[in-house]
Design a binder for these strands. Structure first.
Lengths: 151, 151
DNA sequence: TTCCTTCTTGCGAGTCCATTGCACTAGTGT
DNA sequence: ACACTAGTGCAATGGACTCGCAAGAAGGAA
């Protein structure tokens, strides 16, 4: 499979679409791969590699965690999914779809998905002032959510 | 030492000031502690625990890494230093001073310090829309720096 | 100074999240 | 059916911390 640049996710809407895309890029549609993509579509949420592995394991217990990681990397290169890093704990993966940022509460660890519009000013200022191209999706923003503010 | 709330860093300008603050909070001014604080002041930069340990080890080779971590935690509780998480790699520690955010390049890993003003709009929108209090210091923002954009 | 309390430290072990090398297995085009 | 190579399981490794514990050192009291 070519590992050069993400072909910017076309409209892949189903598990089969993804597998087709994988195959179109020289990959193979394996059991583990299919199950992982299914898990991603079924929950359509932010999930850690461990959580995805748990879902896969419900059906196929011997899919190894390293296989999960390798496939996640693969799918990310194809532009099917994206992952975001949080200050603490494992990264979360989610279907690429429309881009969005993440606010993560330092206390309860909850993630709030937010539209890119929230970052517009930051992106512009960083660009103008430092020539820095902010990727608002890659790092989750830390803070405290409404429920946790008070303590 | 009371571990309740950070007493919001007073004006501590020197190593001795910090040690005094530590003692005022029931801590002791130990060899390891003094060396760590020195390293922090000497470089006055963003440093990882390992880098700080290296500086300390230049003088006292048997200060254990766990001691470095414990002291960093201690100093952070006293408001003397702060740390920021980056998407990859270890956290970086720096003197608290005036707060600032961080832009970290995904390619070259360089950190750019930026004033809080860059985050003003994000902070306001997150607050208004989600009741979420963004802490722009805690998580470094990922992206690509001027030099690395092109590849 | 000596003593005593309690904070600190060194060290080793352990945890969490992720990555890698390797030999074996299994998709695929032919 | 075959061969070629992508993919997989497994174990080991690695980075960055974190923790428990017993020994050691600060600093106030006597």
């Amino acid at each position: 499979m070519s590992r050069t640049r993400p072909p910017l996710a076309p409209d892949v809407q189903t598990v089969e679409d993804v597998l087709a895309l994988v195959r179109a890029n020289g990959g193979r549609s394996t059991h583990a791969r299919r199950l992982l993509v299914s898990a991603l579509f079924t929950r359509d949420d932010h999930m850690t590699a461990e959580e995805l592995a748990a879902d896969v394991h419900a059906v196929a217990p011997d899919v190894h965690l390293s296989t999960i990681y390798r496939n996640l990397e693969e799918l990310e290169e194809l532009g099917v999914i994206a992952h975001a890093h949080r200050a603490h704990g494992p990264a979360t993966y989610h279907l690429a779809g429309r881009g969005h940022g993440h606010l993560v509460c330092q206390s309860c660890d909850n993630t709030i998905d937010v539209p890119d519009t929230l970052f517009r000013s930051l992106v512009r200022l960083a660009e103008e002032t430092y020539g820095f191209a902010v990727d608002p999706h890659y790092t989750a923003i830390s803070g405290r959510c409404e429920a946790c503010r008070g303590s």
